[in-house]
Simulated scan of single mutants.
Amino acid sequence: MAKTAEDNGAPPRHATQTDRGAAPRTAASPPRRALVTGASAGIGAAFARALAARGHALVLTARRAERLDALAAELRERHGIDAVALPADLADPQAPARLLAELQRRDLPIDVLINNAGYGVPGTFEASPWQRHADFIQVLITAPTELAHRLLPGMRARGYGRIVNVASLAGHLPGSTGHTLYAASKAYLIRFSQSLALENRARGVHVCALCPGFTYSEFHDVTGARALVSKMPRYMWMDADTVAAQGLDAVERGDVVYVNGRVNRAIKTLFKLLPDDLALKLIARRSRDFRVLD
């Protein structure tokens, strides 16, 4: 098996960093490079644009090659940064290893990982075949975990790394009827991020679980929930650009878990204070307001 990018033996490209912050960068230093998954639309594309505006080189991955190519070209022209599109379907268990092997082949070390790829499976658990659930678990749990594992040694060796795992407010709430695995997968990303942050903060690697609520994107069109969620009040919604910018600021500050928006933070706090039985009953009554159950 080909060696992955973090094992290529290349000398560190960046000055080392202590647990008190990064060493100053010089004009000769190459730009940090970020890998963004699910970059073809929504929050992923917003992360790509925000990173490019901050001077990062980019590797963009998602299934839709044409969209990736167009975004990479846009960001190269607008910001003068290096942007590479590497289409991949993370539902394929071999995709992360192939992606990392290609990064090694092109000598593209990754300093920032944005684990954003994701979607929802509408309906109840038994309504979908197992393979659909298996693909979901691969994309939302296994792939981001594997990418972090493969890229982390290089970040630690260079004394600098940023990992943002895009979770959700749903990861802080009881599971709802419908979209059975969604909240569970996001809760996993939150706990995974917490442990990973504690293990690596002394080595200059910041890890953050970003937890947006309702965000304007294609997510609800893909799941067939657009008509439902459009009935939600406007104060419940945020735009993808704001979510991404807040996520980058949060990981840079060293925040381990960041919930976007005051309304979402209030909801998280409320459900944390409620008894479990009451919180579950409240979610059960409201599931049809934002989940496709059939």
Rank of each mutant, 00 (worst) to 15 (best):
T4M: 13
E6F: 14
G9V: 10
A10F: 07
P11G: 11
P12T: 15
T16G: 14
P30K: 10
P30G: 11
P31D: 02
V36G: 09
T37M: 00
A39T: 07
A39N: 08
S40W: 04
G44P: 02
A46L: 04
R54I: 12
V59Q: 10
V59K: 09
L60G: 09
R63Y: 12
R67T: 07
D69Q: 14
A73Y: 05
E74D: 15
R76T: 08
V84F: 09
P93V: 13
L99Q: 02
L100Q: 12
E102T: 15
D107R: 13
I110P: 05
D111Q: 06
V112K: 03
Y119P: 04
G120K: 05
P122Y: 00
F125W: 05
E126N: 06
P129E: 11
Q131Y: 03
R132S: 11
Q138D: 13
E146M: 15
L151D: 13
L151W: 13
A157D: 12
V166P: 00
A170M: 07
G175F: 01
T180E: 02
T180C: 08
L181W: 03
A187H: 15
N200K: 07
R201S: 11
A202Q: 13
R203L: 15
V207M: 08
P212Y: 00
E218I: 07
A225V: 03
R226G: 13
L228H: 08
V229C: 04
V229F: 00
P233N: 10
M238T: 13
Q246D: 13
G261Y: 11
R262E: 09
K272S: 10
A284E: 12
A284N: 14
R285W: 01
L293W: 08
L293C: 10
D294I: 01
